[in-house]
Write a protein that binds this DNA or RNA. Structure first.
Lengths: 343, 343
DNA sequence: CTAGACTCGGAAAGCGTTTACTTTCGCACC
DNA sequence: GGTGCGAAAGTAAACGCTTTCCGAGTCTAG
C-alpha cells in the first residue's frame, strides 16, 4: 500500500507538506504543490480514509439499517436515501437486521467509528436494542418505528390515516363486509394500519371488523386469501395491509374462482411499482417511500452538521394518498384503463 | 466518545489488558477479565472500528458498486450479496455510480482504506476507470462486465446463450418476424443479448433482424412498443432485452390495441418478480440474479482471505433458463394458468 | 534458599493521517 | 544593521486501537 510517506519521499518534502498540498490547506508554494501532485498521481496515491477519519472525526458515511433488503419497498427506500446521500456527498452503508435484535445490535456495534450517523428502521418490538447498542453521541433518525420507545427523531408515513381513508373509501363504494389482512404481529406499521381500519369501521354501520393474520409477504397474503375465500359468510371487500399481500391474495382468490372486483374488492397499501401491473390493477394507498428515505437522510445530515439542533425531536409524518385503480371496482373496464405509464 | 482508556481507568488496569480481555487474546486472569467486561458494559464501550482496522488491516467490509439502485434487478442482486456477506460476517457498503465513470472513480477513491474488497458492476464503456482508480492491491470481482477490459475475476450471466435460446424458442413456436428491443447503447449485456438474438436468427429462414433502440427502462420499452406497433409490416413477436422494457412495451401495445399474445408474442429477460404478475404473464429468461450476487461475494471473500489465490482469473458464466408463461402464446388460457405462487 | 520457568499486566511502538507548533528564511522598516 | 514579521516548510503530537516486548511477581525444583 502506498502511503503519504511514499509521496513525501518522491516529492522530497515532508509528509505535512504533502497533506497541505493535497488538501489545499495552509500555505504551500505553487511549485511545490505541483511537484507533490505529480508524485501522488505517479504513485496512484489515495489517502487511507480510515486513518483520516480517525483524526478528523468524520467518515462521511451513514448507515441504513433495515429489517430486510428484499422487495420493492426497500428498494425504493434505499433509492431515496441513496439519492439524498449522493447529493450530500455521503456514502451509504446498508445493513439488514433480519428482524433480529441481536443481529441488529451487533451490526450497530461493528459500525461504531465508521459512520457519522444512523438511519434505522425498526418496526418490530425489538426497538429497545437501540438504547443498548447505539452510542448516545451518534446522530440517529428512525423510520417507521414506534416513537414512544425512543427519543430519536422519527419519520413515518401516515399509516393510520391511510388505512382509515382506504377503509372509508371502500365503505363509500358501498361495501359492507370489509375484511383486513393484517401485517406482521408486533410490527408497528401493521398495528397502525389495523387501527386505522378499525377506526373507519367503528360506527359505520358496516359489518364488524374481520381480521385475518398476515406477515407482509406475498405467501402470507396467499394464505390469507385462501382463508378469506373459504369463509362461510364471505366478505365483499378485502383491505390488505400492504401490496405484496394483496397480490398474494389476488392469486389465491383467482384460484378459488373469486372474481376481483366483481365478487370481491381488493386493496393494498404502499403503491409499490408492481401494483399498477397486476390485473386488475390494485387500488392502494400511496406512500412515497423514496421521498421518505430522502427526507430521513436530509434530517440525519442536518443532525450531523449541527449536533446541537436536537430540538426538533418531534416525529414527522408523511401524508399518504389513495390511488384508485381497478381492483376496488371503481373503473368500469377494470384492468384496462389505469395501466398507464409509470409515475 | 468512550474509548479504551476510559474502560481501563474504570477497570483499573492498563489499556493493553482491556484489549486482551475483550478480544480473548493473550493471557489475563478470569477475575480481571470479568472486571474489564463489566466496565465495558457499564460504559457502553464499543471499539472504534476505524482505529482498529488501521492496525489490523482488515475492515470486514466490502463495497458493492452498481450503476444504479433502482428496480427489482438491483434489489435482487443486493439481496444475494447481502445474504452471502452476512454469512461471512462482512459488512456491505452500497454505492451507485449512476453510469458516470467520474463518480465511480471518486466513489472508489473515498472507499480506500475502509473496505477489504470491491464488487463492481460496470456494464458500460466506462469500465476503464477501474484501472485508474482501483488500487491494485484491492481484491476486486466484476459483475456482468466486459471481461477483456480488465484482468479481474468476473461473474456473468449467460446473456448470449439466453438470448439465443429465447429467440430460438420463438422460432420454434412458429414466429417468423421477430423484433428485438435492445438495451442501452454501449452496455455489455445489451450487446451480448443482441448478439444472441442475431445468432439465432441467422440462417433460420425467418425475417432478418429488426432491432429497435431501448435503454432497459420501462419508459424506453414503452416508446419501443409504440414504434413496433406502428410499423408497416408489423412483427409477430417481440423479444425485449429485459423484463422492464417488455412491461413498458406491453403497455404500449395494449394502448395500440395489439393483443398479446394473439396478435404479437412478447418476451423479456431476467425474470424479475414482476414478470409473473403482468397479464399475460411474461415468458422470459431466468437469470438467478440473487445467486449471481451471492456467488460473486463468495468469490470475493475467497480472494480476500487468500490473497494469493488469484489464479482463477477466468470468468464464471452462470447458466440461464427459459421460463415459458403466457405472453409467447404457449398456454391456451394465457394469463390464467401460470400465475401461481412465487418461486 | 535461590535459580529458573512461567504468568500476568504495563509501557510503548506503530498503523496513516491531520494539524498545532516550531523553525528557517527573506525582507521591509526604523 | 538590528528588529520584527510573514510566508513556507518541517517536527511532532494526537486520533484509538493492537501487539510486541519487557518487568515484576509467583511457583517449583534443585
Amino acid at each position: 500500500m502506498v502511503t503519504i510517506k511514499d509521496v513525501a519521499r518522491v516529492a522530497r518534502v515532508s509528509i505535512a507538506t504533502v497533506s497541505r498540498a493535497l488538501n489545499n490547506k495552509g500555505t504551500v508554494r505553487p511549485e511545490i504543490r505541483e511537484r507533490v501532485q505529480r508524485a501522488a498521481r505517479k504513485l496512484r496515491y489515495t489517502p487511507h480514509s480510515g486513518a483520516r477519519s480517525l483524526i478528523v472525526g468524520r467518515t462521511h458515511t451513514v448507515a441504513l439499517l433495515l429489517p430486510d433488503l428484499h422487495g420493492e419497498y426497500f428498494s425504493e427506500l434505499i433509492r431515496g436515501v441513496d439519492r439524498a446521500a449522493r447529493r450530500r456527498g455521503l456514502h451509504l452503508l446498508v445493513s439488514s437486521s433480519h428482524g433480529n435484535s441481536g443481529e441488529a445490535a451487533s451490526a450497530v456495534q461493528a459500525l461504531n467509528g465508521r459512520i457519522d450517523g444512523l438511519l434505522a428502521m425498526v418496526p418490530g418490538e425489538e426497538a429497545g436494542f437501540l438504547h443498548e447498542a447505539v452510542p448516545h453521541t451518534l446522530p440517529t433518525v428512525l423510520l417507521n418505528s414506534r416513537t414512544h420507545t425512543a427519543e430519536y427523531p422519527t419519520l413515518l408515513v401516515d399509516d393510520f390515516g391511510g388505512a382509515r381513508a382506504m377503509t372509508s373509501h371502500l365503505l363509500g363504494r358501498g361495501y359492507r363486509r370489509i375484511a383486513h389482512i393484517r401485517g406482521a404481529e408486533g410490527n408497528f406499521q401493521a398495528e397502525e394500519r389495523l387501527r386505522g381500519y378499525r377506526a373507519a369501521l367503528k360506527g359505520s354501520g358496516a359489518a364488524p371488523p374481520m381480521v385475518v393474520g398476515g406477515d407482509f409477504t406475498e405467501e402470507g397474503g396467499y394464505r390469507a386469501g385462501q382463508v378469506v375465500a373459504g369463509q362461510p359468510e364471505r366478505p365483499d371487500a378485502v383491505f390488505a395491509a400492504n401490496d405484496m399481500m394483496a397480490v398474494g391474495c389476488l392469486v389465491a382468490l383467482r384460484e378459488a374462482r373469486v372474481r376481483v372486483p366483481e365478487d370481491m374488492a381488493l386493496t393494498g397499501f404502499d403503491d409499490i411499482p408492481l401494483a399498477r401491473f397486476v390485473s386488475p390493477p390494485l387500488t392502494t394507498v400511496r406512500a412515497d417511500i423514496a421521498t421518505l428515505g430522502l427526507r430521513a437522510l436530509e434530517r440525519l445530515a442536518g443532525l450531523i452538521e449541527a449536533k446541537a439542533a436536537g430540538d426538533a425531536q418531534v416525529a414527522e409524518r408523511l401524508p399518504v394518498q389513495i390511488v384508485v385503480r381497478g381492483s376496488c371496482g371503481a373503473q368500469p373496464s377494470a384492468g384496462e384503463r389505469s395501466a398507464g405509464l409509470p409515475r
